[in-house]
Computed example of a mutant assay.
Amino acid sequence: MTTTEHNPTAVGSGQNATASFARKERQAGPVDHERAGAIIGDALAALHEVVRRHQVTYAEYDALKGWLIDVGRTGEWPLFLDVFLEHVVEQVANADRKGAVGTIEGPYYIPGAPEFAAEADVPRRADEPGTPLLFEGTVTDLDGNPLDGALVELWHADDAGYYSQFAPGIPEWNLRAQIRTGEDGHYAFRTIQPAPYQIPTDGAVGAMVATAGWHPWRPAHLHLKVTAPGRAPVTTQLYFAGGEYVADDVAQAVKPELILHPTKSDSGEGNHVTYDFPLDPAE
């Protein structure tokens, strides 16, 4: 396996996330100038109100300009937006769902992970640190019927809080895999239980967090995308009951429906969790 050569600092991680976003397929269409004008106008009006309410000084205004420049210079716009804004966009976009609950994607998704049928030993180093985890469940429709041919994509940080393709020395596709379900809709991943991690703190976003007196930690979580023919896709994260920062995630992405309750595996090695994905019909 090849290893990534990228830097895990804010600049390195931010530039990698920006490059990943630039490669992302995005919907293109005609601009609705009336809607765009309304959104931009309301956003500016909200900022104007903040200036008036807090009597923002020129020194603070200049600090803001410098900070915005630094966010762009370090490539941290995906980090900033995904941590501090995406959770609200996701809530609005998925407000009418009846099935599986979504949350933010974050900046570290990479398409095209190794694909397996029904179950997977998630690619990882021979000496991968961390507690072994068996993570399994079923993809169904809203009536509980299993879905054949659903794709379950999994990615997560390692025990040190780093993602492959975004930190140096980690094998490509480490802790990334996808499963195509069979007629029973079942999937099973054998991986390791991730640890909590800090968002990058040595760049502009970290400076903002420190200035505000906030902590920069995300709770341990598994990232997932689940898709199936004729079904609405869901992107989500799953967290571990009792874990650090579950109650005060810096990204505000935790929802009660997304909490896992691990039990000891039957083999006696590591933990076992089960989580099902009932998918809504596609619109």
Rank of each mutant, 00 (worst) to 15 (best):
T2H: 15
T2E: 14
T3Q: 14
E5F: 06
T9I: 00
A19C: 04
S20L: 05
K24R: 15
Q27I: 15
G29Y: 01
E34P: 00
R35M: 09
A36S: 09
G37S: 09
A38G: 01
I39N: 07
D42K: 14
L44G: 05
A45T: 15
A45M: 09
L47A: 15
H54K: 14
A59T: 15
E60L: 12
Y61I: 12
G66R: 12
T74Q: 10
T74G: 15
F80A: 15
F80Y: 08
L81F: 12
E86W: 02
V89W: 11
A93T: 09
A95L: 10
R97W: 05
K98N: 12
A100R: 05
G102N: 08
T103G: 12
T103H: 08
G106C: 11
Y108L: 09
P111M: 14
P114M: 07
E119D: 09
R124F: 00
R125F: 05
D127T: 10
G130C: 03
P132F: 03
G137L: 05
L142V: 08
D143C: 08
L147G: 04
D148E: 13
G149T: 03
V152S: 02
W155G: 05
W155I: 04
A157M: 13
D158K: 00
D158Q: 03
D159F: 02
D159V: 11
D159H: 14
D159T: 06
G161L: 00
A167G: 08
G169K: 06
G169S: 03
I170K: 07
P171K: 07
W173S: 00
L175V: 06
R176H: 11
I179A: 03
T181M: 12
D184P: 02
F189Q: 04
T191Q: 04
P194Y: 06
T201K: 01
G203I: 00
G206H: 01
A210L: 07
W214R: 07
A220C: 03
H221W: 02
L222I: 06
A228F: 00
A228S: 13
G230A: 01
T236A: 11
L238T: 05
D248T: 07
E257W: 11
D266M: 09
S267M: 09
G268D: 12
E269G: 14
F277I: 01
